[in-house]
Write a protein that binds this DNA or RNA. Structure first.
Lengths: 221, 221, 221, 221
DNA sequence: AATGAATGAGAGTTCATTCAT
DNA sequence: TATGAATGAACTCTCATTCAT
């Protein structure tokens, strides 16, 4: 594989300010996401990305110091999208149902662009050294977003905010990825079930009592 | 040069019958799962697997015709574990709460062995040629298992069995994987939240009415 | 891992159009022929070829998809050379003796470049998948060439054209290869004996009578 | 490939005196010749030979110190056969035509056992270090045999004995190998053409005059 | 003696990355 | 600035050979 990491692998070699540069980097990122989804990590070669983007391999390295920085950038873009969805879903000025629908619709929309790429991106793929910073930063941001959403939509108080947010995040992402794998992202039934999933989970009665022994009774509402 | 004899890339070159051989192949599979979780697909080299298993690279290839067949075998083992959990959770002779607890506990247990390996295994990693068969077969089996579980634990009827089962499967796996990533698999709070997730989702009122327009009302219990 | 894309294993990955590329591929082919003659098939490693050609192993694979395609290319070049000699030797506008001398001199010249490589090339060395096509095509072309030559230089008619051409082809190649092995390719005595071989063989009286019983008499002139 | 040569690679580890051992070594040699002809040098692996011979790889190494010694033994057997044919063809007590027929028939017979193996064996395949001795010894013996045959069947004197013998040897072997490749070894026409080839070549008028300038005239009888 | 699992050097091939043009 | 030929470290896989049983 090689994966030599000579440079500080910083985000980008040069910020693309010109319109042309911007178009090139976007094309590269799109190509990377596309190939990632289509052929998986094993099929994601820098040369393949460059070719699919209509650029030369040299140009690719003009914008991204190495392969890891490239996929980090793809990931960052995906995080941005997810973050935007989360912010919308945490907006208390809209009714609860709308917020949940916005969350579900947003997640579906986000994953509709490169259906298969995201799971590879999130679940696998090594993180660039820079990512240790950037990725964790965005990961934390996502966590905060989900926690805000969790608190905004949950009725009672709960000391499970951290865990609950992660469970929600994982569950929703998992269900969407699974649907993406089956090519069922656009099914109305999926939408409805996801809403049910999120709605019922967030509606579950919770108390502040720490580690209340779980028993048969607690399962019944 | 060794004229390439494609081999069905199938399961194994030779079935390990002796105790020793069996121990070796198991060690190899464990090593592969371990490395997969520890270093991801990019870090999974056949030599690293052999070394970690305390075997020589030659021995590895005595049992697995190629790298893909190796990870397919790891995947198959994981599928078997998941399947066992599903069967237990679909057992109608135990009370509902027990079934759900068994499902959650089982999934947590299954993912505790190689916390990080499974997401890489399921979400990424190319499928061997043989996998197209074996994997899909197990995938279908899992689907059936989840559908049985869905029907066994859902109160009303629903025409969303297929989608619902997938949503449940994806959500549970996603949440568990996310927790595994955070190293929170053994947290009691996680267990409780997962039970809540599954329980509330399965308890959600469903009707046979096809594509009932989703509105504010349906979100309220 | 790089999902194996079998490639027609065909001629070349990219046709070398530029002068530089052409020089590189030629150097590689020469190096391959050289090593083949010097160290035999067992000594022909792709890395050795690349090094001998003054190129990197990567460059070699830029032009030849695999080792088999490489030796197929070497073979093809040799076939071309042989074909050219055959065409010259079948030219009826020159006197018979000249034609035969041209054949012998041509074959000696062709084998003088890589004295030992050709026998390895023709007698051994697996044929690439593509070769099945290309090689047989050239083989057929050679056969036609030899048959034309046989008919052009034989006095009487014969129903042994096919066999006779092959015998001539094999005999001449065999004698030249044997001489090459002894390093006697440039000996004038060799030239004379080869001419004698070809001349007397082609001059032998032949009749159309099928399978005339061979007896003592037929050996006497 | 490895081809480590640790032992003096002497002929054989132990002379097979017992009948059983003898049968095993013969089976191994036959298997080697068979595979060599069938799959070429690249397909000749020690494990394949052992399996084809119905022996274990361990047994093979009990009789042959390494792969090279194995093929040297195969070669030696072939040389013995050829030598026997040469001796018969040099026997002056039988009429000339019979001698030539014996040569041709013998060579055809020798190559009928493993049609394709011999060319690989003679033309290619590395010589074991021991072979340097054994092979050259047999090679010299063959050369002497062919020279005897050449002198015995040529009418006039000639200073081309050495070259002529080699040309004859190479031509005959080449023609037979070519026929073997085409699967035409048993054709009566082949036999007749080979006899013509040898007969006319040996019958060609030769003088002692050294390097008589070759011209148009010398081609006409 | 015979067996065949195990070994590991080394061969074929890929692909991240550089740099001359 | 853009290109893509060239590079070579690292990877997958084979097979000659050994040795415990």
């Amino acid at each position: 594989m090689a994966t030599r990491i000579p440079l500080p692998s910083g985000a980008m070699r040069k910020e693309p300010r010109q319109a042309r540069s911007r178009a090139t980097t976007d094309a590269i990122l799109d190509a990377a996401a596309h190939i990632l989804g289509e052929r998986g990590w094993a099929g994601l070669t820098t040369n393949a990305v460059a070719e699919a983007a209509g650029a030369s391999i040299g140009s690719l390295y003009q914008y991204f110091p190495n392969k890891l920085a490239l996929i980090d950038a793809v990931r960052r873009r995906h995080f941005d999208d997810v973050l935007a969805v989360l912010h919308a879903a945490a907006n208390l000025e809209t009714p609860r149902a709308s917020r949940i629908a916005a969350l579900v619709d947003g997640m579906i929309a986000v994953h509709s662009r490169h259906p298969a790429a995201h799971r590879v991106l999130l679940e696998e793929s090594p993180r660039g050294d820079d990512s240790r910073g950037v990725h964790d930063l965005f990961g934390a941001e996502c966590k905060r977003g989900y926690e805000a959403l969790f608190m905004a939509n949950t009725s009672g108080m709960s000391d499970h905010v951290g865990i609950g947010a992660r469970v929600l995040a994982g569950a929703l992402a998992g269900a969407v990825h699974e649907a993406a794998r089956q090519g069922a992202l656009s099914s109305p039934a999926l939408r409805q079930e996801l809403i049910t999933l999120v709605d019922t989970y967030l509606s579950a009665p919770r108390t502040e009592a720490k580690s209340r022994p779980f028993g048969e009774k607690s399962l019944r509402r």
